[in-house]
Structure formats: C-alpha cells, structure tokens
Computed example of a mutant assay.
Amino acid sequence: MNQEKIDKLSERIINDTNSAMNCLTLYIGHKLDLFNIIRETGPIDSEELSKKTHYSERYLREWLECMTVNGYIEHDPSTNKFSLSDEYAVVLCDRDNVAYTILFVYWIPSLSLALDKLLEAFKTGNGVPYSMYGPDMLYAQGEGNRPMFVNDVAKWISTMPDIAEKLRSKGGRVLDVGCGDGWASISLAKSFPLTKVDAVDADSQSIENAKKNVRNEGLENRISLHHSLMEKSEFKEKYDLVMTFESIHDMPYPVEALRKMRKIVSSDGAVLIGDVSMKDTLEEKNDFAGKLYYNFSVLLCLPQSMNHTNSVSTGAAMTSSTFKKYAIESGFSKIEVLPINHFLWTFYRLTL
C-alpha cells in the first residue's frame, strides 16, 4: 500500500469539501447582495453592515470572517473593517464583465436539489426533469452565460464574414435554438439592428424569463419567443442564420433537431453551433473541460436528456467526432470548425 497516495486522496477530498462549502458561503454573499454593498460603501464592519442591511450582526460577522480567511475579501485589523478589492469586485459584482463568474456558485445548491431524484434514476434508468433543479439552475445558466453572450456573440458571427455582412447591411432572419433567458438573441439584435430573431426553448420558465429580458431591453418588436422542442417546432420561414449554444449535447434527439435546422436554413445561410470542447479518449479528458463537463453530465445534462422517451442520451462529454456524426446524419454536407478561441467550447459552421 502506498500511504502517500492514500494521504493525497484523503487531503484532496477534504479540500474539495471546503471548495464546495466556499460556493455556498459565496452564494449567501451574492444572494443577499453583500458583495455589492461592501463594494459601494468601502471598508465596513459587521455592525455597520447590519445597520445598512437589517440583517443579523452575528451572522454577518461570521460570514465576513469566513470570506476573509478563505481569501475573498480583505480585513484591516487596525479598524476591524472589511473591504473588497477592485479586482475581486469585477468577478463578484460586474454583471457585464466576462470575468463575472460568481453566478457559477449557484449551480451547487441547484444540483443538490435533484440528488434524491438522481439517486432513484441511477436505479431505474429513468431521467430527472429539468424542473427538479429549481430556479437557481436557470439563474446560474442564464445570468452565468450572459456576460459571454453580451460581449461575444457579434465576434463569433464575424468569423463568418458573409453572414455578418448580410445581417449588418440587409438584415434578415435569425433563429436562436435553446435560447434560455434570451441573452444571445438580445446581443445579436443589438449588434445587427436590421435583423429579426425567432428564439425557441423547450423550457417554459426559460421562455418566460426571456420574455421579461426582451421586454426590458425594448426589443419585443424584433425578437419573438417560442416554447417548443426544436424538432417539434413549426417554423416554416427560411433563416439566414440558425444558432445554438451549449445545447446539442442536452438534446434528447439531436439528429432530428439538426435536421430541422437544416430544413429551415436558407441555401446561402449557415448554422452556427457552439458546444463542448471534449477530447476523444477518456484518458485525454482529464483536462479542466473534461472534469467540469463530466460532473455536469452526471448531475444534470444526461439525467434531463434521459427524461425523454428513446433519448440518445448524449451527455455533456460529447466529443467533436460525436457531434460531426450527428451533423452528417442530419444531412449537412460541410462542417467547418471556426477560428474562435474559447476555453470550453468549439464552434462549428454547418452549411447545406
């Protein structure tokens, strides 16, 4: 027996447990708007924070000290006041910045909600409904992806100069598949003011969230929202661009969905896919993307896909070869990997 190997795993599990608890204490800080308040007020002690928020001073004191020892906020022992550095404020408070990753901690309580149902699914082979993960899951996904969408959608489309020029100069129609809270559609509509967008999602609450966001952005006359599985949708118009991000691996029937996209994209249009970057062999998947997406796959992506009858059950560990197989089966003749640098996704252009 290799005692060093035993000790390393034991230590790792303890560290992983602390990391999970960090996610929950960060969640408390974000959910109660404490990070924004600390940023706005500057150095503050627990009593001042209690007066400002009307929260319990004793709980706030313990939370402030917890955030300090875990390295998220700063403490001045001479004044016993706590503060947030400008750099950490970007990550914890700046909603439009691509570094605003605090929303990812919402995944931990959300995924935990479905554990009982997931344990049962392991025994029965059934799926877990999307709704079991609660509102925090939609918030983590919608708001978590928002900074990327509002900053980068136009950049991604620019790697297809013919499509970008058409949308910019002539407008046209775009279909956003698996639109979630609608931020990719909103970003595209703002970047290409002549376009009209149809956005579709299989989750009714996501569509409701998207309606609210579209209304708040004043884009109701240019973005139309639809509740449907893509393969069962009834779109009949031809689209200059069909786009979908991080959704193919979640779809119970990806070939049918891609076939529907192929049917409605115009002859000189394109389908833009952004989905997981995953190596081909299991041994190669021990990089960050592999570890992250396998966790998502076990806890969410595979179970919600298997909730549909005869699902192909792809999961979030979908390789490029698996995706290309789906695209070929659905009838696309050309599959091009676009020159977009992303640490988690690969982008494809599909054409007829």
Rank of each mutant, 00 (worst) to 15 (best):
Ile73Trp: 05
Gln141Gly: 09
Met243Val: 07
Ala210His: 06
Pro147Met: 06
Asn36Ala: 08
Cys301Gly: 02
Val174Leu: 10
Pro193Thr: 11
Lys325Asp: 13
Asn286Asp: 13
Leu119Gln: 07
Leu338Val: 03
Trp156Val: 13
Ser311Val: 00
Glu57Trp: 00
Ser330Arg: 00
Asp33Ser: 09
Ile207Val: 10
Ile44Arg: 00
Phe104Arg: 11
Val69Arg: 07
Ile38Lys: 00
Tyr100Val: 02
Ala327Leu: 06
Lys170Gln: 15
Asp201Asn: 12
Glu47Val: 15
Ile273Asp: 02
Thr17Asn: 15
Glu220Phe: 07
Phe347Asn: 03
Gly127Tyr: 04
His342Phe: 13
Met1Thr: 14
Glu246Thr: 11
Asn70Ser: 15
Arg349Ala: 10
Asp116Tyr: 08
Asn2Gly: 10
Tyr139Ala: 13
His249Lys: 08
Phe323Ala: 11
Leu34Arg: 02
Gly42Arg: 03
Ala202His: 11
Asp96Gln: 13
Ser110Trp: 02
Tyr106Asn: 08
Asn97Met: 09
Leu338Gln: 03
Arg146Ile: 06
Ile163Cys: 02
Leu229Phe: 09
Pro147Arg: 01
Pro193Asp: 10
Pro252Glu: 07
Pro77Trp: 06
Val153Asp: 00
Lys291Val: 15
Gly71Ile: 10
Tyr253Arg: 12
Asp181Trp: 15
Gly180Cys: 03
Val69Cys: 09
His308Pro: 00
Asp33Ala: 10
Val128Ala: 05
Met278Ile: 14
